[in-house]
Design a binder for these strands. Structure first.
Lengths: 144, 144
DNA sequence: CGCAATTATGTTGTGCGCAATATAATTTTA
DNA sequence: TAAAATTATATTGCGCACAACATAATTGCG
């Protein structure tokens, strides 16, 4: 650690980058069972929480732009978990709503979460400090 | 926090996912100056440390497969930072070596790192516990 | 009111990430 | 040693991520 500041082992960015990939790799086989990719799962998390939302609202929650969301939502619609319909009050907006299969999928997602929780062997206390640290880093990077 | 276990705010995976994106977003303008993308920068970190390596060695260090690395390395070669040449001992291997521009680029990368360090406002102690936590999570996920 | 800015979404192009597959060189083994 | 298995790299195809640009609806300002 007193080595080169540019060594891979010293990079917080890489620790986060590789942990993120480890997570999606762990989720992938479980989510494939549900017919979801990891980013699609994130969108479903938003919708299970909000019931319905515009594309922009989903994007704000996840930090994604329409270039990513627009085709992703089309795929989710094709799978049958969401409906996309133009808002009548504001014809620019496309409201995204869960279908019945999309709503009932939540039960199976809870099982997925349970599996992942076991895998990371979550000490609640450590996990909280970890999440606090990550949010602090994220906030600082976004403000800078 | 006593809410739905599936709420976005409770997801460690999303805290990591969004922190990772915040990092690449912070790095992007700085790395663009150097003619690098973030994953290309990671490859350069490996090469600055090892001087030269096979495709597989780089992949092992970063957790990437040849499907990702093969085209990425071609782009790095085109930019002029690396050379790709078949090993004579083992004709299957392609050895990746830094060019002179690739080597001298390290000096400018040190400046980039300094900027990022200021942005995250790194308390060394907090940063270490953060990295320890991330490595623990990653290890657990990969073992499971 | 009418036109200029803004807002919401979509499209295109580039690069990453990975599964699946292909190919060629090397090693193992029968 | 010849055939089978393994290893190293490359290619294809799909989905995400994002910049840049396009379009249509709404808002605001003169």
């Amino acid at each position: 650690m007193t080595q080169d500041p540019l060594s891979l082992d010293n990079q917080l960015c890489f620790a986060i980058y590789s942990a993120s990939h480890a997570f999606t790799k762990a989720y992938r086989p479980l989510l494939t069972e549900l017919g979801l990719t990891y980013p699609q799962y994130l969108v479903m998390l938003v919708l299970w929480e909000k019931r319905a939302a515009s594309v922009t609202e989903i994007g704000a929650a996840l930090g994604l732009d329409t270039g990513t969301l627009s085709p992703l939502l089309k795929r989710l619609e094709k799978t049958g978990y969401i409906r996309r319909e133009r808002s009548r009050e504001d014809e620019r907006q496309v409201m995204i709503a869960l279908t019945t299969p999309g709503m009932t999928l939540k039960v199976r997602a809870q099982e997925v979460l349970k599996s992942i929780g076991q895998a990371i062997g979550c000490d609640l206390e450590q996990m909280r400090t970890l999440m606090d640290g990550l949010r602090r880093v994220r906030r600082n990077l976004e403000e800078a």
